[in-house]
Design a protein around this nucleic acid. Sequence first.
DNA 1: TCAATTTTGATTATATTTGATCAAATATGT
DNA 2: ACATATTTGATCAAATATAATCAAAATTGA
Lengths: 249, 249
Amino acid sequence: MTFQKRKKEILQLLQRLGEADIRLIAGHLNISEVTVRRDLNLLAAENLLHRTHGGAMRVDPYVDSSTYQNKSDINKTAKDKICRKAAEEIQEGDVIFMDCGSTVFNLCQYIKHKKIKVITNSLPVVIELQNSAATINMIGGEVNQKNQAVHGKMAVAHIKKYHATKAFLGIDGITAEGLYANSELEASNTQAMASQSEKTFLLCDSGKVGKKAYLRFAEVNLVHTLITNQDGEEINQLKEKGVQVIIVN
Amino acid sequence: MTFQKRKKEILQLLQRLGEADIRLIAGHLNISEVTVRRDLNLLAAENLLHRTHGGAMRVDPYVDSSTYQNKSDINKTAKDKICRKAAEEIQEGDVIFMDCGSTVFNLCQYIKHKKIKVITNSLPVVIELQNSAATINMIGGEVNQKNQAVHGKMAVAHIKKYHATKAFLGIDGITAEGLYANSELEASNTQAMASQSEKTFLLCDSGKVGKKAYLRFAEVNLVHTLITNQDGEEINQLKEKGVQVIIVN
DNA sequence: TCAATTTTGATTATATTTGATCAAATATGT
DNA sequence: ACATATTTGATCAAATATAATCAAAATTGA
């Protein structure tokens, strides 16, 4: 029973039941509870399920879409801390890019009162900041139903027309070898935003650090500062490559 | 029974009953009253319900700041009828423009199941059609907080890149002398959409027909068909000018 | 095949959640 | 306004879940 196989089974199980506790999953797949816990944490890091105390719940696009993510997720606090720190870097008058990751979305709550300009391809971000002090610039193009964001050539062309002081970006994986994404569309978007801003911040919870994904699309020096919630060997290597790192606790 | 599960149940219960006291909730979910109290406080902090002494009340969804939903009064039925008729004009495979009027917004409910492409500058339209069969193309640019739509040069440039089979537009006033808008931004948007589509429908309740507004920005023949809810002298003049008119009752 | 690496599972210390109890705060009825 | 009843928030102990550590098992690469 490999991880791939278990991943499929767990997601299938959740699809059927809506929710499941560790014991149930362990029994169902004939694996230990420790392994289930490990798997659930990995899947939660990919936003494929909501981790709860003692189990997991299915991600319902219809229910969760309005808020983008369950506010009671178990690892929400790490993201919150990362974003609170990120918000400290934003000054009045800044023009910032925000992309469509779930961590970046959490930044919204900390910048609502700031008089800044926000350029984003994320629909949830736009909705969240609708009645804030910030001026919103929505990047145009076809809306991807799954991640509720706009990607593609039109989007990149739109981004190229603007210049920002700071960019706050998410990502699917980062190692000393480079930045990883799960799709070329997201990668090109990330790259465009980074290239059009003076300073680039990467907001990553520890689940993404040291992890590789489908596509390695850039060197780590595309970003200036990584804000994350856990120190480690990988972090040291990133520092050696010249990436500034802020660890929050 | 995790917090996530209880959260869902409690909100569901409140949705049904409108309000509920601690004892009722505790009994219903088979948990202690202390826990209910804790949960209610957490949910209240997220603004998902109103905490009362001894229980909680549902927070009424979408009493949104601006015009759209709660403008639902007398002329709502007229708008509905107009939109139902307009929806009949839309076939599978169509590419349509929708602008940001409140009448046009009502069209959403009648096209959710249609396999079409929708290009719009209206945020409420995008949100409403988020999980529909339609493909959404959001027009990019700065979001106007007041009417929750995107206007301006970027928007017009975006529109010019697309070609639609039909456009469904609102307006602030129409007489035989021309079309009227309350702002130049909206006018240029309307004009751009009309010029990029094969057929243009104007959706107007009777309050707009025969009414003039700040800016006369185009001749009536910019539109092919007017769908409205009341016949009259003005309508006849429009017909004479070559505008097709559909009256709904 | 064998050594090296990764993955898994048992164990244990740590952290979280829950419900009981009780003093303080708030509502209610006269 | 007062006394009574109810609700609340705080503290604590028990139950439960978790992360961390380490050894065993499985997988991989030479």
